[in-house]
Amino acid sequence: MNLKIGEAWKKMIDRIEGWVDQLIINLPNIIIAIMVFIMAIILSKYISKLTLKLLGKSKLQPSMRQVISRLVSVFVILLGLFLILGILDLSKTLNTILTGAGVAGLAVGLALQGALANTYSGIVLSYIKHLKFGDWIQTNNYSGEIVDIDLRSVTIKEIDNNLVYIPNKLVLENPIKNFSSTAQSRVILECGVGYSSDLEFVRELVIKTIVENFEAVETTNEVIFLYTGFGDSSINFQTRFWINSTSGLEVLKAKTNAIIAIKKAFDANDINIPFPIRTLDFPKPIEITAE
């Protein structure tokens, strides 16, 4: 029993001495590897800042610039780790890591198809010239101001100040209506007047009211007034004019102000905006008999 314990103890001492000898032999390589690792971290920070500075001249969204600079930083650190494995003569370990990374990458790629599609779509959206922060867009039955574009989703702020996160893939694959592609937005207002109204006077009054209440409308020629048809209780019309804003909220405010101004003008000139009326026509007089 004592002999076996002595042999085990001797083997353990021999193993420890071998490790110490190996450590002493590889000490220069270990010091070099540590220095390479420190240099890789410092270099990754410098290259990340440089990448961010270079991307500042591009048309990428700020969030995408941050993501790309971080990916570059991670790539530099990984490159440093591979160099360290080579310095420490761990080529077999390196081959094992690369093989495992390939298999793991295939498995992750299959499992994260949706996430990868959103990532690719986010990169593509960042390069679209007419889609940027602050634009008012409509897509996938949502409309609002773009407040962020990252590798997962496009974030828009709706009129009610709620945030909607739309996956990049859906935004890229579906139509996008950008209200901010021009410096102005068109306000479209529909209304109706009674059949007894002077239609020419109504047209002149509405156009004059719009010109007087909106600075962006300088002349009467900039207001479009069209009668659209005979309704059940009114003759319907539509008026269109431009305002100096691309915000959907400002369009609604302008429409509200136009409704108020037109209603005041109609009231001042005894022009009736009729509500639906139903007339009942009886072919014969109704006889009421007392019992």
Rank of each mutant, 00 (worst) to 15 (best):
G6R: 07
A8D: 01
W9Y: 11
W9A: 02
K10V: 05
R15V: 06
G18V: 01
V20Y: 14
Q22T: 13
Q22E: 13
I24L: 12
I25Y: 15
P28I: 09
I30Q: 03
I30V: 14
A33G: 12
I34N: 06
M35C: 08
V36H: 00
F37M: 12
I38R: 01
A40S: 15
A40F: 12
L43Y: 00
K45G: 10
K49A: 08
K49S: 13
K49R: 13
K53I: 01
K53M: 03
K53G: 03
L55G: 11
G56F: 09
K59T: 14
S63H: 08
Q66D: 15
V72A: 04
V72Y: 02
V74R: 01
V74E: 05
I77F: 12
L81C: 14
L83T: 15
I84M: 13
K92L: 13
L94Y: 11
T96C: 05
V103F: 04
A107S: 12
V108A: 14
Q113E: 10
A117R: 13
N118T: 07
Y127V: 04
F133H: 11
I137M: 09
N140K: 11
N141V: 03
N141W: 07
Y142F: 12
Y142P: 02
S143Y: 07
G144I: 07
I146K: 06
I149F: 00
D150E: 08
D150K: 01
S153C: 06
V154P: 10
V154D: 02
I156A: 00
K157D: 06
E158I: 02
E158F: 01
D160L: 02
V164Q: 05
Y165G: 05
I166T: 05
N168P: 04
K169L: 07
L170N: 07
E173I: 03
I176G: 00
K177D: 06
N178P: 12
S181E: 15
S185R: 03
R186S: 10
G194L: 03
G194I: 02
L199I: 02
K208R: 10
T209A: 06
I210T: 03
V211N: 07
N213L: 11
E215Y: 01
T219V: 04
F225A: 04
F225P: 01
F225D: 05
Y227S: 02
S234P: 00
I235C: 05
N236H: 10
R240M: 05
R240E: 15
W242D: 02
W242K: 01
W242T: 02
W242P: 05
I243E: 03
N244Y: 08
S245W: 03
T246A: 00
S247Q: 10
V251A: 02
K253H: 09
K255I: 04
T256D: 04
I259E: 12
I260H: 13
I260A: 11
A261I: 09
I262N: 14
D270H: 10
I271M: 02
P274W: 11
R278K: 09
T279K: 05
L280K: 08
L280W: 09
P283M: 04
I286M: 07
E287A: 05
T289L: 12
A290N: 13
A290T: 07
E291Q: 02
E291C: 00
